[in-house]
């Protein structure tokens, strides 16, 4: 039988050297301004709510989050958020609107497989890890705080 006529390690090295690289600085700048803008919008929403309604600090935070999550979900549903994401990368993933996007996108995607095993089972296929490790680590922090913090 013929041998594969190529040196695997040398090939991998060559691919690593020659592969076109992502423009990291450009993507950082995009992430910064889009992410910053989303946060500014969030702050504006909060200030506006504060101005218009007599809400406590906690209620203001909750109301702002609700509005931003709705906006993220809405923009996902009308097919805009994925375009923002393709441009801004982490800038649109990190804010809470990105979390909404990661839940609504599978909801749309898996609708043809039905409401139970489609939407129901796959809803958190992207956001799931965030929930698992977010809630998991908060439990650990809580236990540590209970044991040592009093």
């Amino acid at each position: 039988m013929q041998k594969i006529p190529f040196d695997a390690a040398r090939y991998r090295e060559r691919v690593k050297q020659r592969a076109p690289k992502s423009k990291t600085l450009l993507f950082c700048l995009r992430a910064f301004w889009v992410g910053g803008l989303i946060c500014c919008v969030g702050q504006a929403v909060r200030d506006l709510l504060d101005y218009c309604f007599p809400l406590t600090e906690d209620e203001l935070s909750a109301a702002t989050a609700i509005i931003l999550v709705f906006a993220g979900g809405f923009l996902t549903a009308v097919g805009v958020y994925d375009q923002i994401g393709a441009y801004a990368g982490a800038g649109s993933v990190v804010p809470i609107t990105g979390f909404a996007n990661s839940v609504v996108a599978p909801a749309i995607e898996y609708r043809p497989e039905g409401l139970v095993m489609g939407v129901g089972a796959k809803l958190f296929s992207i956001a799931g890890p965030v929930l698992v490790y977010g809630i998991g680590s908060s439990i650990i922090v809580g236990l540590v705080s209970l044991a040592f913090g009093g």
């Binding site: 592969a19 690289k21 996902t76 958020y81 994925d82 994401g85 393709a86 996007n101 995607e109 992207i126």
Partner: peptide
Amino acid sequence: ERQYRFPLELGTTVPPT
């Protein structure tokens, strides 16, 4: 996309390769 990667409406970036 849905079989190999992510839901279509998820905002992701792709590398140049």
